[in-house]
Amino acid sequence: MTATHYFRGFLGILTREALRFLQQRERFLAALVRPLIWLLVFAAGFRAALGIAIIPPYETYIPYEVYIVPGLLGMIQLFNGMQSSLSMVYDREMGSMRTLLVSPLPRWYLLACKLTAGTFVSILQAYAFLAIAFFFGIEAPLLGYAAVLPALVLSGLMLGALGLLLSSAIRQLENFAGIMNFVIFPMFFLSSALYPLWKMRESSPWLYEICRFNPFTHAVETIRFALYGDFNPWAVAITLGSFTLFLSLAVLGYDPARGMMRRKGGA
């Protein structure tokens, strides 16, 4: 077991994810159309209904479609993380997860590689979305496009780790609708993706508290601040903490000694 072996294994997993991504054009298209509908239709309808006060990191009044761009970047990564978790559950039924797990590399390392590869794919999608948004005149400061990269890496890893954790813990996900209803929608709507949290506090202090505890809120805020060349240490810290927690639990879930796999019988 040499460093070369580890590196080759990582490249192999990354190549496979990239090939699968390129060969599933519909998936790529769907990943872009979804946030674009929110941006170009939903935001257009809502800009009149919703006034946005000046809040950091923005230095001036901003139209609603500018406000929701970071939230939609988060949504792309949220979907990607859940989709790869769904594909892992599906994989496991199909058996290709097993092919991965019987490789002579430590299991935590294999999971970390899979996570990194998924994050890489989600970042490609996020930048494609930013490019289209730019084309429609929704621009961020030029420096922001570079500064957002580490933020996207962190949020992508956190949401991917959540996906990994779900794939290890959930017995069977019949279809994507289950994840939509119980993970994606609550995480997305109970966050700062679509509305600033102070707005939420005005209507319901109780929901406001939930939003504040939602890791997705902090992923979105990490992205939002980075996109404007700013840094939100609190959001970064919570995103990083959530990532560590989710990944540790996922590695535990896949541990052959105490893992969830054994409870699932032949799976």
Partner: peptide, 24 residues
Amino acid sequence: FQQPTLDLDLSVLQNLRYHAALRG
């Protein structure tokens, strides 16, 4: 394994190269 474990959308060669990489 009993169930098929190949990636259907990848070529035979791509599937085998993936495995070879995992084996270092």
